[in-house]
Amino acid sequence: MPASLALPRVLRVGAGASTELAEVLNSLGLSRPLLVTDPFIASRPFFQEILSRLEQTGISPGVFAETVPDPTTDVVDAGVRALREGDFDSLVGVGGGSPIDTAKAVALLGAHGGRMRDYKAPVVTDAPALPVVAVPTTAGTGSESTRYSIITDVETDEKMLCAGLAMLPRAALVDFELTLDMPARLTADTGVDALTHAIEAFVSAKANPISDGLARDAMRTLFAHLRSAYTDPDDRTAREAVMAGATQAGMAFSNSSVALVHGMSRPIGAHFKVAHGLSNAMLLPIVTEFSVGSAPDRYADCARAMGMAAPGSTDGEATGALVWELRLLNEELDVPSPRAHGIDAERWWELAPLMAEQALASGSPANNPRVPSAEEIVELYHAVYG
């Protein structure tokens, strides 16, 4: 069966890419963008410079700066009201995955109406939404290059995966200079998030030769440079590499899929308000160890791509090195367990069966090399707790 591939129509990568927003909007025939961001980004000098450049070129931007970490249906609804009141013709998501995912969701409802729960997986929405331009300020989510948005339903506390070409940005401006002042914790969590995207895209049941190439390059780049970006925030070479790797990883999983780590991660974020990247990082080593026996050749290739194992190593040697190195990476990046993060043990055990059901319902675990039962997912949650 042929693979279905989709990428942003315009992709500009490198220092200063964000300064080309006005040119890109003009090239797409757009003149009234609503910039979607969070209060912190809206206060930053570079954001004010973006607004100034737009206005100098005759573009009339609006600003919606009410996004929150792990965007909610309430915030999306507020964004839709701002969109309609201002009669804007497009959305520009400026920030991490949350503002960009919010912009995608607002663009979807602005074009098609309804509620976000109408579009959650397994629904796939390919009908065009309003144009979205993504300007990421973190290196990890890959949302600037994916056909997915994750929105929390405030009525059910469910993190909903919404998918389809309607969620794919029309353009992405990937400027690593916007990440230079990322704090160490955010650098680590989003970086491991990107590494998870690449690994899961590669081992997914829906992997294809194009996504494989993107995932291999992303893994190699991210693993080689993430520690440096974490320990030395001013290392421009590392920052640029991690940013590029994150975008490649986003393109890989958008055209393949994610798997069990992401399926288990979303309920953790919904119930315990753990950032998406951090919950992925918590899960990655243990879920990888659970899964390697069902696709040892694919996981071994991951290890070889990242230089964890020699080209001539056996699959057993390579997969052993992969699990060991992922655990070591988490230690060096100070990734906490749920226990160390302060999550209450009793509440964790109580919610584990529900989280397992929600993980399976997302569909992502079905793409995993080893497809787990609900009982096995509960056991994994217990093992991950710490």
Rank of each mutant, 00 (worst) to 15 (best):
A259F: 02
P136I: 04
T237P: 00
A22H: 08
T57G: 03
E317R: 06
L21Y: 02
M219G: 08
R220Y: 10
Y230K: 05
R44L: 15
P285R: 04
A139S: 15
G316Q: 14
V335P: 02
T187K: 13
T152W: 01
L222G: 06
F290H: 06
L30S: 05
G14K: 05
L222I: 15
G245I: 06
E66G: 14
R239Q: 12
A194M: 06
G213W: 11
E240H: 14
R304W: 07
I151A: 07
G191N: 11
M160A: 08
I377G: 02
I268R: 01
E240T: 14
N26H: 14
V384A: 07
S254I: 09
T125F: 11
G277T: 07
G342V: 12
L91R: 00
G269K: 05
T237G: 15
P285C: 10
P311R: 15
A6T: 02
G312N: 13
T187M: 10
K206L: 13
L178K: 04
R304E: 10
F253S: 07
S256H: 06
A241E: 12
M355N: 10
A321N: 06
N367L: 08
R147M: 12
G29I: 09
L51T: 06
A356Q: 05
R239I: 11
S31V: 04
M308V: 04
I50M: 14
Q48K: 15
R170T: 09
F223D: 12
L173C: 06
A345Q: 14
E379A: 15
L165H: 07
S27I: 11
F202I: 08
L326C: 05
A218T: 01
P338M: 10
E332V: 09
G293H: 13
T72R: 08
G29H: 10
S337W: 03
L21M: 07
